[in-house]
Design a protein around this nucleic acid. Structure first.
Lengths: 190, 190
DNA sequence: CGCGTAATTGAAAAGTATCAACACTGGTGG
DNA sequence: CCACCAGTGTTGATACTTTTCAATTACGCG
C-alpha cells in the first residue's frame, strides 16, 4: 500500500509559503538516496511533496522488511523527533523525490504553538498505528497469494512501479515465493 | 511483550485526584470483559491502573490476532477518540482490571489545553508505532521458535500468566506449532 | 462423577524457503 | 560492433516449516 496524506501536505505548503524565517525548505533526493538511516540520530522531519519512498528495517538476519511505501504528503522522522530516539528504519527514495524538510526544533515548536499542526500530527500518528496494526494482523493470517492480491488491488500498476525485490520485502517473503504467487494468482501480465 | 507506561499512569493519577468535575473515574472489569469492541464507536479512553488486558483483532478468516498485552499505565481508545473512527481491535480483560476512564470530550479537551498531557499522548503514540513496526518486522523474519524465546525472555512467567491459546494468537501461529516450538526450544517446564 | 475447556500429540497436507541454473536487459569499454 | 558485466527477473527440484485434522489426555468445578 502506498500511503498518502494530502491534508498534511496542504498545510505544510501553506506554512512554507508564509514562513519568514525559512525554517521549512524544499529538498530533492535522487533515486536510491537514504533520507533517514536506521539507528542514527534524526535531525529533520520530512514531508513528501512528490515521488515515492520505501520505509524499511534491516533485521539482524540481514533481511530487509519494508514497512510501507510513502507517497505524496506522507511524513517521516516525526516519531524520532518526538521521542528523541534513534531511527528504527531507513527511508529511501524509489524515484526522484521532492520534499519539505523541517528542523527538529522548528517541528517541536510548531507542535507546541500551532494547535492545528498539533492535531494533524496526532491524526497522522493515530492513522499510522491503525494501518500498521491492521497490516500485521492481515499478514499473519493470510497466505502470500492473498496478500499479493490485496497489494495489487491497492496499486494496480504495482509491477511497473516497484521492483520484485521490494514487493517481496514488503510481503515478507522470498522472491521465489513471490514469483510462484504471481503465477498461481494469474497476475502475470499486469 | 506486556507493555507498561508508568509515567502516564502517574500523570493521570494526579489529574484524577485534582479533578473537581469528576470526569475521570475509576472502573473495574472482571476477567473476560471486553472494554472496547472491534468495529464499534469508542466513547472513552482508558488507562490501566492494575491488571492485564489483551488487544486483539478478529480477522475475516475468524482468526484472532493479538496485537499486544497491556499492563499498568497503558492507554487504549485514544486512537479512535482522536481520529473519530470505529475501533479496529477489541480490548479484553485477562485478569480483574482496574482502570481510569476518561470521556471522549474530556480527553480531547485535555489534549487541547494541557500541553504536558498532549506531549505524553504524542510520546505514547510514537512509542506504539515503533513497537508495532519492530514487532511486525521481527515476526516476518524469524521462525516461531525464536519469536517464542524472545517473548519468554520478556515475560519469564509467560505460561503462568497467559493461556497457550493467547500465546499462539500473539505469535500468529497455531497451537500445534506453538507446542512443537515449546518442545524444541526446551521451554517446557517454565 | 460428569461436563466443558485447555492442553498434547501424531500423521498427512499445504505453504514457503533454499539452492542452483538460466534468461533478459542496458550499459561499458575494447 | 561485439563481448562482457551487473542488475533484475524466471524457473525447477528439494528440503524445511507450519497448518490441518483428528484423537486423546489433563484439569477445574458444580
Amino acid at each position: 500500500m502506498i500511503r498518502i496524506n494530502e491534508k498534511f501536505l496542504d498545510y505544510i505548503t501553506k506554512l512554507e509559503a508564509s514562513d519568514p524565517s525559512k525554517e521549512i525548505i524544499k529538498v530533492e533526493a535522487a533515486v536510491g538516496t537514504p533520507l533517514i538511516k536506521q539507528k542514527t540520530n534524526v535531525l529533520f522531519v520530512y514531508i513528501i511533496k512528490k515521488g515515492l519512498t520505501k520505509c524499511y528495517l534491516t533485521e539482524d538476519t540481514g533481511n530487509d522488511f519494508i514497512q510501507e511505501f510513502f507517497g505524496k504528503g506522507e511524513v517521516f522522522g516525526e516519531l524520532e523527533v518526538i521521542t528523541g530516539e534513534f531511527s528504527f528504519c531507513t527511508i529511501e527514495a524509489l524515484t526522484t523525490v521532492e520534499c519539505y524538510r523541517i528542523p527538529k526544533k522548528a517541528f517541536l515548536k510548531l507542535i507546541k504553538e500551532d494547535f492545528v499542526f498539533n492535531s494533524l500530527v496526532m491524526n497522522l500518528m493515530a492513522t499510522k498505528i491503525r494501518y500498521t496494526a491492521l497490516r500485521h494482523s492481515y499478514n499473519q493470517s493470510h497466505i502470500i497469494e492473498d496478500r499479493l492480491k490485496g497489494l495489487h488491488q491497492n496499486i494496480p500498476d504495482l509491477f511497473a512501479r516497484i521492483t520484485k525485490n521490494d514487493i517481496a520485502n514488503y510481503l515478507g517473503v522470498t522472491i521465489r515465493s513471490l514469483n510462484r504467487a504471481i503465477k498461481t494468482s494469474g497476475l502475470e501480465r499486469s
